[in-house]
Amino acid sequence: MLETVIPIAYALVSLAFLLSFWRLLRGPDAPDRILALDTLYVNTIALLVLLGIQLGSAIYFEAALLIAMMGFVGTVALCKYLLRGDIIE
């Protein structure tokens, strides 16, 4: 059962990845691109989790956690930059 479900999930998440990437390239505004980047981080976490289940290895958890944290900090820093023109006030 899992052997058939995981490839389908891979396909769906990869499609999601491509759609977000398309939005990142197309824009049209800076907030759109940041939102696309943020979504790409989350999609990457989804791919990593799927990989972890498929390979039966818990080692990808740390990578997922780091991407989640760095992604959030990156998004906040970029938004701050748009709001103030400066990251550290």
């Binding site: 059962m1 479900v5 995981i6 769906l12 998440v13 990845f17 759609l19 979504t39 999609n43 989804a46």
Partner: peptide
């Protein structure tokens, strides 16, 4: 079965989120 349902739901929602974005 529980795992398959969770994985499929998760993947579908992830896809729909990005579909909305695009």
């Amino acid at each position: 079965i529980l795992l398959s349902v969770l994985i499929l739901t998760g993947a579908i929602f992830t896809f729909i989120g990005s579909l909305g974005l695009a």
